[in-house]
């Protein structure tokens, strides 16, 4: 179905799929309300607070079983993970990348097309560290994100916000010897999704990171400070530890802003899991 609505003679929206209309008008009765989701988020946080009070250790990562994020229900294992302590494990080494795997323009998402993308130009910079605080140099950092209107250049994203012909939203770079990375991009917009009625994702940039060990692999999302959508978002709230949640939020750093050009954000990333430092540390004996 296609329909066009106009107000004051201006065409506002063209809709090709009934699902989009349904989403725009919130007609899907099978979906939970935001208040139901909020109650579930609060319950999970209370349960975590009780665990902590009973002596459990701090939980740095989201639980894979987190019902407020509806898609997690059938996609998480129910049996506990099996700990591998084998010093010969292949996962203690990992893939490497180099200058042939990136091009110079990959770290500047605003220069990948002939024109300037719409939106607020930003730089995101920080350091990639292992859990000992040691910089991870020469490793691949990949990012992807929605455009300023909150739409991904992905066929499955049918959110009726404009695509930007000058913005794809994909970048990559190698970290420097000090673990540093920098991307120039556009601040992404928030966007609706179908987890529940009136569900909106806070603006975020997806990050993919490698350490020196495959076991340090990390895929995560960086958020922007002060976003009013934080409390409503089950994906961010799946990190039930408040201080851990805070580590997903970048810091606005005025010293990183460039006059008449861009606003600067800083976000350091710390990889979990064992680093492949045992060779250097002589623990292989």
């Amino acid at each position: 179905m296609v329909f066009t609505s106009s107000v004051n003679g201006r065409v506002l929206i063209k809709i090709k799929a009934e699902g989009r209309q349904q989403r725009m008008t919130g007609l899907d009765q099978s979906q939970s309300s935001q208040s139901q989701i909020n109650a579930e988020i609060a319950a999970a946080q209370e349960a975590y607070a009780k665990e902590l009070a009973d002596g459990a250790s701090v939980r740095h990562h989201p639980a894979r079983d987190y019902p407020p994020y509806r898609s997690s229900v059938l996609r998480h294992p129910k049996k506990p993970l099996v700990a591998v302590g084998d010093p010969e494990a292949v996962e203690l080494s990992g893939p490497v990348f180099g200058v042939t795997d990136v091009t110079e323009l990959d770290a500047d998402l605003t220069r990948q097309h002939t024109g300037e993308p719409l939106g607020e130009r930003i730089t995101v910079t920080g350091r990639l560290l292992d859990r000992n605080g040691k910089p991870v140099g020469g490793q691949l950092v990949e990012i992807w994100q929605a455009n300023a209107s909150g739409r991904y250049a992905h066929q499955r994203d049918q959110h009726p916000a404009p695509l930007d012909p000058n913005f794809t939203g994909v970048g990559r770079c190698l970290t420097g010897d000090d673990g540093s990375y920098t991307f120039t991009t556009i601040k992404p917009g928030p966007y609706p999704w179908r987890n529940h009625t009136n569900a909106w994702r806070p603006a975020h940039i997806h990050f993919s990171l490698f350490g020196t060990a495959f076991a340090q692999r990390l895929v995560t999302q960086m958020y922007f400070p002060g976003d009013p959508l934080f409390p409503y978002d089950p994906i961010l709230q799946s990190v039930t530890d408040e201080s851990a949640r805070g580590r997903l939020v970048a810091t606005y750093d005025h010293d990183l802003s460039r006059p008449e050009w861009s606003l600067g954000y800083r976000w350091d990333i710390v990889l979990d899991g064992p680093a492949a430092t045992w060779i250097e540390e002589g623990r292989d004996a």
Partner: peptide, 29 residues
């Protein structure tokens, strides 16, 4: 270029994981 923050505590807490979501397909493969 400003200097990076002073050396962090020896054991910084890890950055939490988040889902890869539905839209990585034009970025990672």
């Amino acid at each position: 270029m400003p200097e990076f923050a002073p050396k962090l505590a020896s054991k910084p807490a890890p950055t939490p994981a988040q889902t890869i979501g539905p839209f990585y397909g034009y970025a990672l493969p």
